[in-house]
């Protein structure tokens, strides 16, 4: 069994601060690139196992509607999975906004969702990794429509001992666009993140 990585209060503070900067960047990028002006919530950070993650998603995502769930992997010294979740209604609003059509088709909607995910992941993760002086590689995102809020299939998921969950919410009221963001890192990557934060702390206090 893998040893649990213990995050101190200092580690969590640094991570929280880095993520605050990251969401600020993301908001600015969306305003600039997609002409949508809104806010993003202060991220919540939790360390859990896979069952805890499933539970967390159940509590965060409403069960009533269908969701476009876009997942994008990122690799490098800090690797993980970026998940962006919006309801089908919001996805249509997004398609409307980006493609400027009354009734966007499925392809428009999928592409719009991918585009927004790209911007969110690139700004948030890049900002985080920039602060930590590392580079990451982004992989092609993929979207699937999931009915309800069962976004994690336990039977298809390896038993990671630890998962770090960074979650936030974005709201662009004029465009009726809002969604949930989860950034997940597991086992070895959590240790890597801790080491990088340690370096950052050393830099700060050197």
């Amino acid at each position: 069994m893998l040893k649990r990585v213990e995050f101190s209060g200092d580690h969590l503070d640094v991570l929280r601060e880095l993520m605050n900067i990251a969401v600020g960047n993301a908001t600015a990028s969306i305003a600039d690139l997609l002409q949508a002006f809104g806010t993003m919530h202060i991220p919540k950070i939790a360390i859990s196992d896979i069952k805890g993650l499933k539970q967390y998603m159940h509590e965060t995502i409403p069960n009533e509607s269908s969701h476009y769930v876009t997942k994008q992997l990122f690799g490098g010294p800090l690797g993980g999975e970026f998940i962006f979740v919006i309801t089908d209604e919001v996805a249509i609003n997004l398609g409307n906004h980006l493609y400027d059509v009354e009734a966007p088709n499925d392809a428009d909607i999928y592409d719009a969702v991918i585009e927004l995910t790209n911007i969110l992941s690139a700004t948030m993760i890049s900002r985080l990794t920039e602060e930590l002086n590392i580079k990451v590689q982004f992989f092609l995102p993929s979207t699937e429509i999931i009915s309800g809020n069962d976004l994690i299939y336990l039977e298809e998921t390896a038993e990671y001992s630890q998962i770090i969950i960074i979650s936030t919410q974005m709201e662009f009221q004029n465009q009726n666009i809002n969604g949930h963001i989860f950034i997940l890192a597991k086992d070895a990557m959590i240790q890597s993140l801790k080491d990088l934060i340690d370096q950052k702390l050393e830099e700060l206090y050197a």
Binding site: L33, A107, Y110, D111, E115, I119, T123, S126, T143
Partner: peptide
């Protein structure tokens, strides 16, 4: 081609210094 979308994607790539993608799940765009 939808050049408005392409332009936005190129702009995003340049601004964020990060790759952008077309959705590959439905039809070729």
């Amino acid at each position: 081609i939808d050049y408005r979308t392409l332009q936005r994607k190129i702009r995003t790539t340049l601004r964020l210094n990060s790759p952008t993608f077309y959705d590959a799940s439905l039809t070729n765009r």
